[in-house]
Design a protein around this nucleic acid. Sequence first.
DNA 1: GTTGGATTTTGGTCCGACCATATGGTATAG
DNA 2: CTATACCATATGGTCGGACCAAAATCCAAC
Lengths: 245, 245
Amino acid sequence: MDLSEKLDGHGAAGTAGRRSDAVAAELARMIQTGDLQEGERLPAERELMQRYGVSRTAVREAIVSLANRGFIETRLGHRPIVRKADYEIAVDRVGNLVGHLMVDREGVWNLFETRIFIEGGLARWTAKHARPVDLEELRSALESNRQAIGDPLLFDETDAAFHAVLYRAPGNPIYPAIHKAYVEWLTQHWRSMKRGAGIDQMNHAGHVAIFEAIVARDPDDAEESMRRHLVAAWEFVRSTFPTDR
Amino acid sequence: MDLSEKLDGHGAAGTAGRRSDAVAAELARMIQTGDLQEGERLPAERELMQRYGVSRTAVREAIVSLANRGFIETRLGHRPIVRKADYEIAVDRVGNLVGHLMVDREGVWNLFETRIFIEGGLARWTAKHARPVDLEELRSALESNRQAIGDPLLFDETDAAFHAVLYRAPGNPIYPAIHKAYVEWLTQHWRSMKRGAGIDQMNHAGHVAIFEAIVARDPDDAEESMRRHLVAAWEFVRSTFPTDR
DNA sequence: GTTGGATTTTGGTCCGACCATATGGTATAG
DNA sequence: CTATACCATATGGTCGGACCAAAATCCAAC
């Protein structure tokens, strides 16, 4: 097939956009419809150029495009491998796009504010709908967090794990993907904070308050506790910016 | 400069990854640090190949990569233009990554569920913190929506505008970007629904209930009204899937 | 000063070649 | 017979030069 483009000799961009875009679109379609299964190897470049009647250059640029969009994975000396993007990869990619928006206090605040919003809502949701198994997970995560007080690295880890339980509770894979992004994007600011031993105590206390509100099935209290917990955390994050007002 | 890579003759991938990746990384850095300002034109390909000591092929692939990531915008016969990605572009890009997850009912439901979650939270937030000007905007949007009953296209437009007010209210640019994505991603399913005149009536009634709860400053009622409104809408979206259970 | 065509710039494509890595099969050593 | 070293091949990565088409620019004619 010729991509339904009249083979107008070799040379410049035809009347219908870039050749490489046409190839990329065709391959992307095959991936999305399942003609090319996940994990399968893409045809070799030299075969694709014959199949679609374009040069290897065009094929290569199409492959680069697909790779950048996360549809395939390229390794040197190896045929590209089909990789359907999931929510995590997708959200991950947003990160390197808006990285430049995360350099000043306003950009980070915008992100952090959405976190307060979402986790507040999650705390409310969990207080209302959590199953016993969710509560048990939460209790367990809280205990691990308590034991980690004093060990900065371990505390951060168990801290994230505690919040992760809330993101998992609704059973929607989009939430954990968002949580992963929050952790990755905000982690650098978190790390640059010098923090005394008292900070861990305070954060753990926040977790306790959230947990207790949830087991008490008090949505309002759960949301408010979460909000207080995160706003307190923000005070430290914001302190990492020189131009504080 | 030579990208700090020993110019190991022309030929295959050096010891340090692809040449094009190195060029892309360097240009991306220049964009993020502001050495290349928004709207500015990138140097010509033939100049970049000299400046970095690589072939035009490598330069081109680097440019393709940057374009796919949204850092630059390419037009035929035109130098690429620097375009720093904002929240909208970023969220937009997630769409074409997870497009394949939006083909079955489960994927769409996961997305729709997050919409219910977020808009429920927004309704609650607005009921609690809305300024008079927000309420006025909301009232105006509601009136436009009422007048559009019967005109399918206009109704959808005013419907989205009504919800948009809620996304704008917190003053965080991330929320409108998310709303835009919801509208774009779910719009196709929405369109494929044949709907009688009564549906508009029902949806408008839902908006009225939400509005009244907000002006009454009743967060619980606002969230619940929004939830009912969206769950009802979901019933129609789900009907567009053949494998209903 | 404005307009319209010729020239220059610049991106898009093709071709053929070469190198580096990865894979697999084969011959050789144990 | 097994295991290892080695070589042929497949495949991706890079280069250089060439040509085309669209856009931008320049310049002369009006």
